[in-house]
């Protein structure tokens, strides 16, 4: 039987390294590394708590041209969404997934606001997602794919509105991975995890920074500070 391309590449790597693939010590080293999740160097910048952590998240998000609204209860989200659409002269219409947290919000209190369920199709002016988490160090949203929050909502609508609970903010990216493992299991990931830091942009024409390349032209973050 001839060797497969996989076997040949692995054999070349082992020859070049002068190593044996069956070497127990090497296998143990790799197994330890994969299960230990060593954190490494965590910048001090994000290591805050309470209001300071929320303040940093908002400051960093605004620093990358996202707009931020801070509200004190999930019940206020529909009104905040409606306000945003009005401020941007957009139609009172949003696309959103089946996220239970979003579904529990009083959308009916906004009689003019039409909520369309499901994935984005490309013609929407605005989409609403619920973020899995937020990273204060860089003002980054963490969005996970699924029926709750379809990935297309993060990219196709002209305006992306993302709701994040203040309780889901962490100082650094590493802390988010512990949460992902907690929800999806060790070594398992949702199909897509989007780390989103500001609205879409490009500097490909003479290095002039322009917003709204292929993804949303604007990113609006609604931070829910409960309790």
């Amino acid at each position: 039987m001839t060797a497969t391309s996989r076997e040949r590449i692995l054999a070349k790597i082992r020859t070049s390294l002068g190593r044996n693939g069956e070497d127990e010590t090497r296998r143990d080293t790799v197994a330890e590394r994969l299960s230990a999740h060593h954190k490494g160097i965590i910048p001090k910048r994000g290591q805050l708590s309470g209001k300071d952590l929320i303040d940093l998240f908002c400051k960093m998000a605004e620093g990358v041209q996202a707009s931020v609204a801070r509200i004190s209860s999930p019940d206020e989200v529909p009104a905040a969404v409606s306000d945003y659409l009005r401020s941007k002269n957009l139609s009172q219409q949003v696309r959103m997934g089946a996220d239970a947290r979003l579904a529990a919000m009083p959308w009916k209190d906004q009689p003019n606001l039409e909520v369309m369920q499901g994935r984005a199709e490309g013609s929407e002016e605005a989409g609403v997602s619920h973020a899995f988490a937020g990273i204060a160090e860089t003002g980054t949203l963490v969005l996970t794919s699924g029926n709750d929050n379809p990935t297309t909502i993060n990219f196709l609508p002209e305006h992306h509105i993302a709701v994040v609970n203040a309780a889901d903010l962490s100082g650094d990216m590493e802390a988010v991975w512990a949460k992902v493992r907690g929800k999806y299991g060790e070594g398992t990931m949702p199909r897509t995890v989007n780390l989103v830091t500001g609205p879409s942009r490009s500097a490909d024409i003479e290095q002039t920074l322009l917003l709204g390349a292929h993804g949303p032209r604007a990113l609006h973050v609604i931070v829910v500070e409960e309790g």
């Binding site: 990358v64 160090e137 860089t138 990931m189 199909r191 897509t192 993804g215």
Partner: peptide, 15 residues
């Protein structure tokens, strides 16, 4: 930039 705008982690096809 501190972070690029989109850092996307993809694992397998549509579920």
């Amino acid at each position: 930039q501190d972070m690029s705008v989109y850092t996307t982690f993809s694992t397998g096809p549509k579920r």
